[in-house]
Simulated assay, not measured.
Amino acid sequence: MKTKPGAKYTADFKVYYKGGRTETVDVKGGPASRDFSLRRKLLEKAIGQEVTVMEYNYGEWRRKR
């Protein structure tokens, strides 16, 4: 019986701030896929922190948490 490999999701980049704080960021140039929220939640659980989503909409970038 064949099995499919598991779905994989990685954020676009990680920001390291002075003082030790980090921020994991994912950039979306349009609407996210249907399963994005589930993949995001799984990644957040795996890394132990929220993923910040930067979304481009109507000519401007917006931060979504």
Rank of each mutant, 00 (worst) to 15 (best):
K28H: 11
R39E: 15
R39F: 06
R40M: 14
K4W: 14
A46W: 01
P5D: 15
G19H: 09
Y17H: 12
V25P: 00
G48T: 01
D12H: 04
L38R: 05
W61D: 14
V53Y: 00
Y17W: 08
G30D: 09
S37I: 06
R34Q: 13
Y58L: 15
G19A: 03
K18Y: 08
Y58W: 06
E23D: 00
G59H: 14
F13M: 09
F13D: 01
G20N: 04
M54W: 04
F13N: 01
L42S: 14
V51A: 10
Y58I: 05
K28S: 06
K41T: 12
K64S: 01
E23A: 02
R62M: 05
N57L: 11
E44W: 01
R34S: 11
Q49G: 05
F36W: 11
D26G: 05
D26R: 08
K28V: 07
R40C: 09
E23R: 06
A7C: 12
P5A: 15
A7M: 09
D35N: 02
G48M: 11
K4Y: 12
V15N: 14
G59K: 11
K18V: 07
K8I: 12
K41N: 13
E55Y: 08
T3E: 13
Y56D: 11
V27E: 13
K14S: 03
D26Y: 00
T24I: 03
N57I: 14
E50R: 15
S33G: 09
A7G: 13
V27Q: 06
Y16S: 11
K8C: 03
V15C: 10
D35G: 12
D26W: 12
W61F: 08
T22L: 02
F13T: 12
G30H: 04
K28Y: 10
T22K: 11
T22C: 05
R62K: 12
F13H: 03
D12C: 03
V53G: 00
I47L: 05
R63G: 01
R39N: 12
G19L: 02
L42E: 08
Y58C: 04
V25K: 04
E55W: 05
R62E: 03
R34I: 13
K2T: 08
K4L: 05
K2M: 12
P5V: 11
E60M: 11
A11Y: 04
R63N: 06
L38P: 02
P31M: 08
K8W: 10
G6W: 07
I47A: 01
Q49A: 10
T10V: 15
A32T: 13
F13S: 15
Y16P: 00
G48R: 01
W61S: 14
A11K: 03
E60P: 07
Y9F: 13
D12K: 01
E55I: 05
R62V: 04
T24G: 00
L38H: 13
S37V: 14
D12I: 08
A11D: 06
G20D: 09
Y56H: 10
T3H: 12
V25M: 02
E50Y: 11
K45A: 07
A11L: 08
A7W: 08
K41R: 13
